[in-house]
Design a binder for these strands. Sequence first.
DNA 1: TTGTACGCGTTATCAA
DNA 2: TTGATAACGCGTACAA
Lengths: 344, 344
Amino acid sequence: MASRVTIKEIAKALGLSTMTVSRALNNRSNVTELTKKKVWDMAQKMGYRPNYIAKSLVLNKTFSIGVVIPEIAHSFFPEVIRGIEDVTYAEDYQLIFTHSAEDQERERRALTALEAKRVDGILISTAQSSKDYTPFTELIESGMPMVFFDRCVYDIGASCVSMNDLESSREITEHLIQHGYKKIAHLSGPPEVSIGKKRLDGFLKALKEHKMEVKDGWIQEAGFQEKGGYDAMMHLLELSKEDRPEAVVAVNDPAAFGAMQAIIDHGLKIPDDIAIVGFTDDIRAKLMPVPLTTIRQPAYEMGKKDAEKLIKVIDKKDEKIEEIVIESQLIVRQSCGCNKLEAD
Amino acid sequence: MASRVTIKEIAKALGLSTMTVSRALNNRSNVTELTKKKVWDMAQKMGYRPNYIAKSLVLNKTFSIGVVIPEIAHSFFPEVIRGIEDVTYAEDYQLIFTHSAEDQERERRALTALEAKRVDGILISTAQSSKDYTPFTELIESGMPMVFFDRCVYDIGASCVSMNDLESSREITEHLIQHGYKKIAHLSGPPEVSIGKKRLDGFLKALKEHKMEVKDGWIQEAGFQEKGGYDAMMHLLELSKEDRPEAVVAVNDPAAFGAMQAIIDHGLKIPDDIAIVGFTDDIRAKLMPVPLTTIRQPAYEMGKKDAEKLIKVIDKKDEKIEEIVIESQLIVRQSCGCNKLEAD
DNA sequence: TTGTACGCGTTATCAA
DNA sequence: TTGATAACGCGTACAA
């Protein structure tokens, strides 16, 4: 229940038509400077506040962009949001924020709500449990501008901003191989999620290039959170000492944090008994008891590029569908034990 | 540009009036089950999507709540957002998210935008640079439901959910005093911001109760971020050895992190040369090289209570203005050196 | 430069 | 139970 003053009342107060008032308030050219000033002064005096709901209805444009985030607690996403917000603020869009909590049903409801609110476009990173892509395809086919980031769905008509996940995963695995590790396991994400699959593929590619074997059970699905990482690592630790991996590539940092805890709880040392590497460069990675070797994801930049692309799509200035890839960076710390092995 | 099917088209296709269709879609009682079913089936078949913009215009209600956050990178706020989102999701409100980046001008623009979008209410934590409260008062006087959290403005007609800041600050300072520290300094927040003032007052209260002195320059304004904490601490470190404090109470954890770095850069040891405590229990606090003694703020709960109160205000079920206080908890770690002193 | 008529998609009101 | 009309606040198209 905000203010009640409308352009009609301003018009009446000044003896003008609503149209003239509307034009004046929008700073159109075809209004006398004098009347423009009169209108602005009166609007100020009467406490007029524009009603974007009415404006949106007639213009068929809401100046809002929907954002769907799978996990707000993960430090990666707030950074992405900062990037998105910096762009959308400058372009005068508001963000309608929704949180899928990694749940497909919540994600679906979020998309329905965003559609009902007639957002001008949607930025989304898919939930871990999303296996059914029809909500995305239907929305895109209906003409809703949509750009994915980080966790994408390909070949359904939307652009995507992501990291070079496969190559980065291959690189960090290669790093372990170069430093003498022979038995390497992977804590994977869900294979339905793009980055889960790509990071697994990169891991396998590195091993294949070196003709290294992957034992049964050396690929454990962990998901993207600490708990999953802990549980999956526990499975690896139950293997006989001979079968137990010497090094672990985790799908992301939170999963790695959970796994590190599991290793410690199991009475083993990082990296001496088991080396581990992550993916993200979470704000906590360098602060862990054994600082985590990881891949740095430029989250802020990803958000920025994502928002920029979406606005181009909305403005129809750039309708081509593309995969925008952001370069990552290997950050070597102590958890991979590579300094130690080099010294040997 | 979402779908184009309207209730009017459904009505035409079925030979009904728009009103009947509207009633059917909203599951009103005064419609035959038969026609209700026919309408739903046709809506499904034609791919109808409700237009909440139009609905909002006539109902004068948007089902959206505006949120103004000063700093998304600070781990405290994403946690608050999780709390807010859990409540608003259950109540079918969407969140319009804005970020003031600690800047008063951005905050003002955010509020204007939220008003223009006719949000049903606003949740806000004020920006560090906010000294002029008129944007808040005008909005509240115009009838906009508004509830502050953490950083509040009092006596302008809005409720507030916050911690017992003064008492918590007194408690953590008292903790230092109990363990033998005589020379204690404070890295303060901006005095214009509620928590800055309250935490300073709590600090002073503890000293006063023990008739301890506060030297000139022992209260340094640091603001809420690492850089400010670093710079302010540097000023303290420039004091002569005799005047230099033995312990420091920082206004929040990020400021403490910056200060810790300054102490290390100055070649001193924590807590042996200088003890330090923070406020927040940031996700990083326990991971620091010397784990930080701090006050835990129940961020999730704060967000939840905040959203619950706002929705009550919106529904006019509870119009009383109140200060909702959430209890905090002292978390003792190594940075205060209190274990050491106890052992002595 | 200014004004008139109408439409955006939906719901409330009141009558049938 | 259903329908006709008006209204929400604003902008477009066209006329004056």
